[in-house]
Design a protein around this nucleic acid. Structure first.
Lengths: 125, 125
DNA sequence: GAGCTTAACAACAACTATTGTTGTTTGACA
DNA sequence: TGTCAAACAACAATAGTTGTTGTTAAGCTC
């Protein structure tokens, strides 16, 4: 673990808004002005590979990164882009028998999509 | 509805594998050799806007398009990229009360991720 | 059927997000 | 201090998608 990696890791854990690679870069550069966006991408990918982070691909735009302490789901506001975590488990959700033998399911992601949220509504009115 | 739009629409409905924009283009070009990829993208976006199609963004790579007759979920094989539909409903899945007032949820997507599937395993031996 | 209007299309380039490549730096260890 | 390996930075390239603009085609009126 190099200084860059530690700094990127801490930036992720300090942010609760599922930042993009660019947002992480921007945050890290306040301390390490010479770090390249390429290194941030590289490191984020490595951390995802190690299972330290989760990468969220929810719709168009850049990928977002999540510190992933525990498995959880997400609520996405399509109006403002806000993403909230949801640590509730849904034990009833599983593949029906006719597909369970066909696929080796390793994880289940649930995304609730919203047309608006408290933040949006507050900003408008 | 122009001939191009009808052809793109029928190509989508004729395919059961959630094709990418390029795959649709490739299919449509067998009849309409002059159609541009730009037009396919444009039309797919229009159809998504009309609610005739759903756009799937499951991980990196190009977006995939789904004729969306009924709301449904997906099983994705990360090994080979295969995507299967799952029309089962999960009525127990919903936002807990503390978030339900914050987000105006309009849809719920469930993605089952698999590390392998029958097709992969069969292809390997 | 000619002229007008509008929507759709095609060609081209631009753009965003991400990755490949390659040379340089840094740190560990003999 | 010399050598080696891992990580990094700089640069460019790539994939996927969209912006822009001129052209074509369809519908409408007379």
């Amino acid at each position: 673990m190099t200084a860059q990696r530690e700094r990127i890791f801490s930036a992720l854990h300090g942010a609760s808004d599922h930042p993009t690679a660019e947002a992480v870069w921007s945050e890290v550069r306040t301390d390490m002005s010479s770090i390249s966006l390429r290194t941030v991408y590289q490191t984020l990918n490595d951390l995802v590979g190690m299972g330290e982070l989760a990468q969220l691909d929810i719709g168009p735009g850049p990928a977002r990164f999540d510190p992933m302490n525990v498995p959880h789901h997400h609520v996405v506001c399509d109006a403002c882009g806000r993403i909230a975590d949801l640590t509730v488990e849904f034990p009833s959700v599983g593949l029906p028998d006719e597909l369970a033998g066909d696929f080796d399911v390793v994880s289940t992601e649930i995304i609730f999509r919203a047309s608006g949220c408290g933040v949006c509504r507050g900003a408008e009115g």
